[in-house]
């Protein structure tokens, strides 16, 4: 009796395990097909022609430099913010953490709308204007939009990276005569190397792929504030599939590279 019972129980566990794996595979299969379609549907000549078009070259260039600039700015802020949230206790920490994280759950369009209202004809907008920053419907606006969209992701990765670094490493460094700042530079930053890499690639992928926020704040103007997602959107509205698919492929390649590097760093999001 006992052995029969055991067999039955083991069978049940197996069915549970197998069905969970099955569910995971189904979704993976659908995604693989969807991604595959992006590469299978267009013919290569069409993609090649689109890549060489003036609009695509403009869009690629604009995406690259805004993306790189935004990523650099994001990291300049994500490092100190991530470290602060990981190490320090202060009044209002919960509030700071919630607000910085908010854009993760925020629709990009709403974020764009908020930024448009802030940088429009308001007190804050005027201050920035007097400093030479004009964010509404400009390429500077693209950078601002990408920055705010990608920042929370980078901050989260940096916080969890610093969480994993034993504060006692820093204690030892300070006991050996190094100040907090020197310890941060000598110990915390080098040990956070993988996290910084992960954070940078994810930030870059988010920047390159930001659509809603850019559309609302910088506008989706042809050959002016046209980054890759905007190219995709504009061309699909004109029914120009070649151009749309090409920008889709470029964006997909960037994302794949980012996720590949991210996975290799073994950092948690």
């Amino acid at each position: 009796m006992q052995s029969l019972k055991d067999k039955h129980r083991a069978g049940k566990t197996n069915a549970f395990k197998v069905s969970l794996i099955f569910v995971s595979f189904i979704i993976t299969a659908v995604l693989v097909l969807a991604i595959g379609a992006l590469f299978m549907v267009p013919d290569i000549k069409d993609v090649w022609e689109s890549l060489k078009s003036e609009e695509m070259i403009f869009s690629l260039k604009l995406s690259m430099w805004t993306g790189l600039l935004s990523t650099a700015l994001v990291m300049v802020f994500a490092l100190p913010i991530g470290y602060t949230l990981s190490r320090f206790q202060f009044i209002g920490k919960g509030f700071v953490k919630t607000i910085i994280d908010l854009p993760v759950a925020f629709p990009e369009l709403v974020l764009g709308l908020c930024l448009l209202l802030l940088f429009g004809n308001t007190f804050v907008g005027n201050i920035f204007k007097s400093l030479g920053f004009q964010f509404v419907f400009t390429t500077q606006g693209i950078v601002a939009a990408q920055f705010f969209t990608a920042l929370p992701y980078a901050c989260r990765i940096m916080k969890s990276t610093f969480d994993y670094i034993d504060p006692r490493m820093e204690f030892v460094s300070r006991s050996l005569g190094y100040s907090m700042f020197e310890t941060f530079m000598n110990v915390s930053l080098p040990l956070a190397r993988n996290g910084i890499l992960a954070s940078t690639v994810i930030a870059f992928a988010r920047c390159i792929g930001t659509f809603g926020t850019v559309l609302i704040l910088a506008g989706g103007t042809y050959m002016k504030t046209e980054v890759l997602p905007i190219t995709l959107y504009l061309n699909i509205s004109y029914g120009n599939m070649g151009m749309a698919l090409t920008s889709g492929i470029v964006l997909m390649v960037v994302s794949f590279a980012a996720i590949y590097i991210f996975e290799r760093t073994e950092v948690s999001l």
Binding site: D166, R168, M169, F171, V172, S173, R174, S175, L176, G177, Y178, S179, V187, P190, L191, R193
Partner: peptide, 18 residues
């Protein structure tokens, strides 16, 4: 701490891995 000149050794060594 950096001014006190007191050393510390931990159970898990806390060596700088880099």
């Amino acid at each position: 701490p950096e001014k006190r000149n007191i050393g510390i050794v931990y159970q898990d060594y806390a060596l700088l891995s880099h």
